[in-house]
Amino acid sequence: MDQYEQHPLVQDELAHHFLPPTARAMAAVARWPKLREVIRSATEHKFPGLWASMLCRKRYFDDAVTEAVSSGCETVIILGAGLDDRAYRLPALADIPVFEVDLPRNITEKYQRLHALFCSVPKTTTLVPVDFERQNLAEVLGDYGYRADRPTYFLWEAVTQYLTERDVRRTFDFLGTAPVGSRLGFTYVRSDFLSGQNLYDAREAHRQFVTKSHLWRFGMSPDTVTDFLTEYGWHKTEDLGATEFNDRYLEPAHRRLPLTQIERAVSAEKR
């Protein structure tokens, strides 16, 4: 047993059930430490620090949603849910409404995975298909039973960089209507990386996600996050990157792993 198995950052026994076949096979292979190191090294070559940063980000939002529910949030909404499995593995979410929102094709895939695993969608979870370009998010959520007057934890993880600024602001128009006591967690990619001003030793990642495929389009700067959130009535409580993740998660576990500076994670409150 190596250090990763002795001190896992994330406890997730369900993940392999939700993964696509190729990723599931890779995860199975990665159970062997030597093969895991080969996979990790290949990933790190293209995107230095991605491996550990994703684990820290997952752990951070696991902790954040758990703490938010214990502090009074009565509902959880996961925007761009994809194959996220928090609703099914975190004890804090066992008895509260969770709305998983995504494009119709992604919701269909999630529905199939849940039926294969549980024979049905768990009663506390509602899958919400939304065409973000044509439908109003608040109206669709209302149609699916979301109570907009209840304090809610909103999670928007690893999504904003794929959107235009217009679409990000449209979502924040909705988030701005959240009641007092609500909380928000989201990630962003640094704007100076998208512009090429600072590549943070990740030239290959910039080529793959920005210049070649144009997949990443929206970014923010740590200096502007507070003002951006204030526009929509939110108060920033944390904005974490590589340094903070290292101090909070890696150092206490005596791990020495690189972390990317490209992506940051934010928590905010509606006061």
Rank of each mutant, 00 (worst) to 15 (best):
S120T: 15
A64R: 08
T108K: 13
F99R: 03
V65H: 02
A116W: 08
F118T: 13
V121G: 06
D149R: 06
T125M: 11
P48Q: 01
R59H: 10
T125Q: 12
R113D: 10
I107N: 10
R89H: 11
V69I: 13
P129E: 12
S53H: 12
D102S: 12
Y146Q: 06
E133M: 11
E44P: 12
E100N: 12
D143I: 03
E133Q: 14
Y88W: 13
L103Q: 14
P97L: 02
G142E: 07
F99T: 00
Y144G: 03
C73K: 01
R36S: 10
K123Y: 10
L103F: 15
D84G: 07
D95Q: 13
E67D: 15
E74N: 01
K123A: 15
C73H: 01
R36P: 08
E74C: 04
L93K: 03
R36W: 11
E139R: 14
C73F: 04
K58F: 01
L83C: 09
V128R: 02
A68W: 02
P122S: 04
L137R: 07
D95V: 07
W51V: 14
E74M: 04
I77G: 00
V140N: 04
I78M: 07
A87F: 08
T125P: 04
N106E: 14
L50W: 11
L114T: 10
I96A: 03
R105Y: 12
R36A: 13
V38E: 05
A94S: 15
I39H: 05
L93M: 14
A52C: 05
E100L: 04
F61C: 03
R57D: 08
T126N: 04
A52K: 03
P122M: 02
V98A: 00
H115R: 15
I78Q: 07
A148I: 06
E44F: 07
Y146P: 00
Y60D: 06
L103C: 06
I77A: 10
R105M: 13
Y146D: 02
H45C: 05
R147G: 01
D143P: 00
V38P: 06
R150I: 00
F47A: 11
L35S: 09
